[in-house]
Amino acid sequence: MKEDDIVGILESDDVKDVKPLNDQVLIKVAEASDKTEADLILTETTKEKPSIGILYPVGPGSLDEEGKRQPLSVSPGSTVLYSKYAGGEFKGADGTN
């Protein structure tokens, strides 16, 4: 494992206590809709994974060539749109993503 593979530090079983490193962020994914616009009920397997979420903690930013921190342009509480295949899933002790 390389240092670049480490995303954050988990200091307890609560996902909100994750401390992201460098330019990493933790996103609370929005809930997927249970129905379509035509009121058809969707099963768990047919629900599309949302690509919108709210930022929880964010890392301090990456280091530039001179070793200075470049802070992220987003902050905790921001609503973000992210790539469908970005990041990895993480479940807390209570089962939330």
Rank of each mutant, 00 (worst) to 15 (best):
E11A: 06
N22W: 14
L10R: 05
K49N: 09
K91R: 10
V80D: 00
D64E: 02
A38I: 10
K28F: 00
K19L: 14
D64M: 14
K68R: 07
E65D: 05
K16W: 06
G77E: 00
E31Q: 08
T96Y: 13
E65V: 15
E66Q: 07
G77P: 15
P71N: 05
K47P: 01
T43C: 03
Y85Q: 02
I9Q: 06
V58Q: 03
D5K: 02
V7E: 07
S51V: 11
D64I: 14
K16G: 14
V25P: 07
K28H: 10
G59A: 07
Q24L: 01
I6N: 09
G92C: 07
I27F: 01
K2V: 07
T46S: 09
L55Q: 04
D5H: 06
P71V: 09
D14P: 05
A86H: 09
G67N: 01
V58E: 00
D14S: 12
G87W: 04
T79Y: 12
E44W: 12
E65C: 09
D39H: 14
T45V: 11
V7R: 07
P60K: 00
S12V: 08
K28D: 12
E44L: 08
G8S: 04
D13Q: 05
V15R: 09
E65Y: 08
S78F: 15
N97W: 04
V58A: 03
T43N: 03
S73F: 15
D5S: 14
I9F: 12
N97F: 08
K2C: 13
L21T: 11
P20H: 01
G95D: 08
Y56R: 15
L40V: 13
D94I: 04
D23F: 13
P76L: 00
K84V: 04
G77V: 06
K28G: 05
N97V: 13
V18T: 14
P20T: 07
K35D: 00
G95H: 10
Y82M: 04
G95Q: 05
P50C: 03
V7W: 09
P50W: 02
P50A: 04
A32R: 09
L21Q: 10
N22F: 14
K35M: 12
D39L: 14
L55M: 05
K84T: 06
P60Y: 11
G59Q: 06
K47R: 12
Q24P: 00
E31I: 08
R69M: 04
Y56Q: 14
I54M: 10
E3K: 02
E37N: 08
T79P: 02
G77K: 10
E65I: 13
I27P: 00
M1C: 05
V80A: 01
D17P: 11
T36D: 00
A32K: 07
S12N: 12
Q24I: 06
L81V: 15
P76I: 03
S33C: 12
Q70P: 00
